[in-house]
Simulated scan of single mutants.
Amino acid sequence: MNGQNRKDIKPGIEVDIVLKVDQRTGKLTSGIVKDILTNSSTHPHGIKVRLTDGQIGRVKQIRA
């Protein structure tokens, strides 16, 4: 699943995100969602989340 729909993302799930500094390279960072920061139901670049370790980025992939 891609990370463009807010309804697919819940705190506690494992996701791959792109950090702001990695947007040019597209490097993915894995982690567990702590907070969902995007208020809209969808976002074309991915829903913005905060991971449990404090990193913030847009969800590119939801790990099953």
Score class of each variant (00 low, 15 high):
residue 35 D to R: 15
residue 6 R to H: 12
residue 24 R to D: 10
residue 30 S to H: 11
residue 7 K to D: 09
residue 23 Q to F: 15
residue 9 I to F: 03
residue 39 N to L: 13
residue 12 G to P: 02
residue 37 L to P: 08
residue 10 K to N: 07
residue 48 K to G: 00
residue 21 V to F: 05
residue 30 S to L: 02
residue 29 T to R: 14
residue 46 G to S: 09
residue 58 R to S: 11
residue 36 I to V: 14
residue 52 T to I: 14
residue 49 V to D: 07
residue 45 H to D: 15
residue 52 T to D: 13
residue 59 V to R: 01
residue 4 Q to F: 06
residue 18 V to G: 01
residue 19 L to E: 08
residue 61 Q to D: 04
residue 27 K to W: 01
residue 29 T to P: 00
residue 34 K to W: 02
residue 9 I to S: 07
residue 3 G to I: 04
residue 18 V to E: 11
residue 43 H to N: 15
residue 36 I to M: 08
residue 11 P to C: 10
residue 46 G to W: 00
residue 4 Q to D: 09
residue 5 N to K: 15
residue 7 K to T: 08
residue 21 V to R: 14
residue 16 D to A: 13
residue 45 H to M: 13
residue 21 V to S: 14
residue 60 K to T: 05
residue 38 T to I: 06
residue 41 S to D: 15
residue 19 L to M: 11
residue 58 R to E: 09
residue 13 I to E: 02
residue 2 N to R: 11
residue 41 S to R: 10
residue 25 T to G: 07
residue 20 K to W: 05
residue 58 R to P: 00
residue 58 R to V: 09
residue 21 V to A: 13
residue 10 K to T: 12
residue 36 I to A: 08
residue 46 G to M: 09
residue 18 V to S: 01
residue 16 D to M: 09
residue 18 V to C: 05
residue 57 G to V: 05
residue 10 K to I: 11
residue 42 T to H: 08
residue 54 G to L: 13
residue 2 N to S: 10
residue 32 I to C: 04
residue 59 V to C: 03
residue 40 S to A: 14
residue 38 T to V: 08
residue 34 K to S: 14
residue 48 K to L: 12
residue 30 S to E: 08
residue 21 V to T: 11
residue 40 S to E: 15
